[in-house]
Each structure stands twice: as C-alpha cells, then as structure tokens.
C-alpha cells in the first residue's frame, strides 16, 4: 500500500516545515529559559557570585529529577499538564510544551557547565575592578563562554530535532508523525527512507550552522 509520491511530496514539505517550526520555537524558548536557569544555577552554587544554598538545592534537584526521564515517557506523563496549559494534547503546539520543558533543563545544565569552565581568575579580575555580580554575568561570563555556549545550543538543537520526531509519533505534527502514520503503521518503506533522510539533512544543517558560528566567535 504504497503512497502516491506525485502528491505525497507536499505532505513531506509541510511536515518538514512543521518540524522546523516546532524545533525553532522550542529552541528559542528553551534557550532563553535554560540560560536563565543555568545562570541562576551557576551563580547560586557554593562559592558562586550570588551563593544561595536553598535556591541551588531546589533547582539542582528539580533538574536531576526531570533530566533522566526518557522524552517519550515525559511527553505522555506531562500530557494532563499540556492539556491545561495549551488546551489540547495533539498537534504541533501541544508538542512544543513538553519539549520546551525538558529542553530548558537540558540547556540549563549545558549553560552551567560552560560557565563553570570560564577561568575564575577572569571573574576575580572583573570583581577587582568593581563590577557587580549581574554585570559580571552579562559582560564577562556570557561573552567569555559564548563559543562553547553556541556549541552547546547546537547540541540541543540536534537533540530537539530528535525530540520533535518522538513527539510526532505520539500526536505531535512534523516529520515524526509522517514516519509513524505512513512509514510505520502502513509499512511504506519509501516514506520511512525519505523521513529519515529529511531528519539527517536537518541535523547536518543545524550542526554546520552551529559550528560556523562558534568558529567565528572563538576565532579559530
């Protein structure tokens, strides 16, 4: 029961568009939220510039609880929350909610570890010049860690393409949904091959852009 490719390609283009949309919106939201959570995590840790034990402990525990949950489980487990926030459990928007939630905590860890790799001496130099903690975060930490941060975001972007495909199989839109409904449920190998190819191309583009940007920032 093969699909008619002369008409089916439109569905592939639409699905690709949906995937790109889901991934980009999720990346934008989770990058911002994750950056914020990661910064708080970094600044409140022991010996940090805004050391705060309770805040760090709560955030750290929250991340450690959420991150090990496989995305396919998270998306199902979160579905009641998704329904109350987004209004529905199916479609592109419904998929974005759990993706943002899970990705935010992933990004937070990436941000935290990249900020930790900034030499403490540089931060001390800024302190010695009279810079305030927030000033240090915005004008020293983020610029100094920008190269690795971009690579970290790229890593997250690639992971999100994967997430979006998973979301597609449980009611989200995009390429994953196409692969599930036509490739898997209707045993159409050609759809499977094409969707996998689309995903590979998307990942390649994401990685390439990330590498280019990081190289520009790192000047090497």
């Amino acid at each position: 029961m093969s699909v008619d490719w002369s008409r089916f390609w439109v569905k592939v283009v639409d699905a690709t568009g949906e995937t790109v949309y889901m991934v980009l919106v999720t990346l934008a939201l989770s990058a911002l939220l994750g950056l914020a959570v990661g910064l708080v995590l970094y600044a409140t840790r022991k010996g940090g510039i805004l050391q705060n034990r309770p805040v760090f402990a709560v955030l750290n525990a929250l991340i450690n609880v959420i991150r090990p949950v496989p995305f396919i489980i998270a998306i199902v487990a979160l579905s009641p929350v998704t329904r109350s926030v987004v209004g529905t459990m199916i479609g592109t928007e419904a998929a974005i909610f759990p993706m943002v939630l899970v990705a935010t905590f992933g990004v937070a860890r990436i941000v935290e570890s990249n900020l930790l790799s900034v030499e403490p001496g540089v931060i001390e130099a800024a302190r010695s010049m009279g810079a305030s903690p927030w000033r240090i975060i915005l004008t020293v930490l983020i610029p100094e860690a920008l190269g690795p941060l971009i690579l970290g975001f790229t890593f997250m972007l690639v992971a999100l393409i994967d997430f979006s495909a998973v979301a597609g199989t449980v009611g989200g839109g995009g390429v994953g949904n196409l692969a599930m409904t036509y490739g898997y449920l209707r045993f159409d190998t050609s759809v499977m091959v094409v969707t996998v190819a689309v995903l590979i191309v998307l990942v390649q583009i994401a990685q390439l852009l990330g590498n280019l940007l990081a190289r520009k920032v790192l000047r090497r």
Binding site: E119, G121, V122, S128, M129, G130, V217
Partner: peptide, 22 residues
C-alpha cells in the same frame, strides 16, 4: 556597593594576567 566604588580606585594585576579572551 560603596566597596565596589573603592575597588575602582585600586587596580589589580595578576600572575596569569586574567585578560578577557572575548
């Protein structure tokens, strides 16, 4: 806050230079 203002009148130089790479 006042201490940060005082720090601006005290320069500091480090063994590992601690320059901003960015």
């Amino acid at each position: 806050r006042r201490r940060r203002a005082v720090r601006q009148s005290i320069g500091m130089v480090f063994q590992q230079f601690n320059l901003f790479r960015s």
